[in-house]
Nucleic acid binder design. Structure first.
Lengths: 187, 187
DNA sequence: TTTAGGTTGGGACAAATGTCCTTTATATGA
DNA sequence: TCATATAAAGGACATTTGTCCCAACCTAAA
């Protein structure tokens, strides 16, 4: 739900210490509300989050949003676009101030070619995302709202974070009205 | 929707010609209705389909099924489980008679370590699956049934295949009754 | 031919969800 | 302080979807 990947984070921190060329790899800060990736736009960087929370979401043509994941420490962004040379699949917006490593795409591709360890990390990460995405799609389709709602409430409690009602609804793929109904039902 | 990957297929066909050890890699046939993977079960093989159609689906505890994808020529199965050493995430059942290459997991892992080309193919495949899975989750949540229904009808027409109503409903994450209603609405 | 099982199609009602709108809080800047 | 915008909560109604049925149809085995 709130995804993190500390293997990635320590990998990139190590690399950042050694790598002096800030054209290729640099640590940047982004205020809350920044779009790191814009759906259908062209991205020139791959990001790995050092600190903060982002949401990764689709904006559909009917004006509704669907949040795929909340990404936090150590999560990678824009890797799919880099691998497949595509425009951005969805948008990624910062929900808090965010510090992230920005990696040039050619440098990212070099890493993939040369560093077996990095490849493995990435393969592992994509596999985990597939597991999350597909099992969530299944349970969202086949269960009532409350099932997913409980999970997102737990998350906020455990991690001590606050997600706006609108974002919660977008994560569940429902309207605000339905979210409110489900919330009163839980009490 | 009906996924194929001809790069994988020619890769594995090449390898199969060279590789004499049938313990590691062999071509097998499975009659319609065979479970190549069983949800929560342990798998000892990774498969690459040579011919035929399979469905990859979750069985939820409430008795409902959700079909993630229909996999056909060149698609790989069980790779996520092999990469992450997990039990099977979902089941894969053959919808027609199927011919598939069965790869021993240790041999699969060796391939991943040694063959840069294979790694790239797999990374590309996982990336594409993420694109499909997440964008489908989004549109299924945010649009009416008819949107997805039209696509699955097109598929059957173009590919000249027949999917049972039950499977169509499971793919759309709805009940048979709702599927029938949507079908009459389309006329 | 008959039977049994599976697939398909749809009626009737209940439950869930969306749409539209209003009201109440809670900020935040003028 | 006031005004204004924004988030949150929920009423009323329409629409969608699910549940529980039953009937028609087809196919394969007896």
């Amino acid at each position: 739900m709130l995804r993190t990947n500390h293997f990635f984070l320590s990998f990139i921190e190590n690399l950042h210490e050694k790598q002096a060329n800030i054209e290729e790899l640099s640590l940047k800060t982004f205020p809350k509300g920044t779009f790191l990736l814009k759906q259908d736009g062209r991205s020139s960087k791959v990001f790995i989050i050092k600190e903060g929370i982002t949401k990764c979401f689709f904006s559909e043509e009917n004006g509704k949003d669907y949040i795929v994941e909340f990404l936090s420490e150590g999560e990678i962004l824009g890797e799919i676009e880099a691998i497949r040379n595509n425009n951005c699949l969805c948008s990624v917006e910062t929900l808090t101030d965010v510090e992230a490593y920005a990696i040039n795409i050619p440098f990212f591709k070099q890493l993939l070619e040369k560093d077996l360890n990095f490849q493995k990390l990435l393969l592992d990460e994509l596999a985990e995302r597939l597991i999350n995405t597909s099992s969530r799609a299944s349970s969202q389709q086949l269960y009532t709202i409350e099932y997913g709602l409980k999970k997102i409430l737990e998350l906020q409690y455990k991690q001590n974070i606050v997600i706006s009602k609108e974002d919660m609804a977008a994560y569940l793929g429902i309207t605000l009205r339905s979210l409110n109904r489900a919330l009163t039902n839980l009490k």
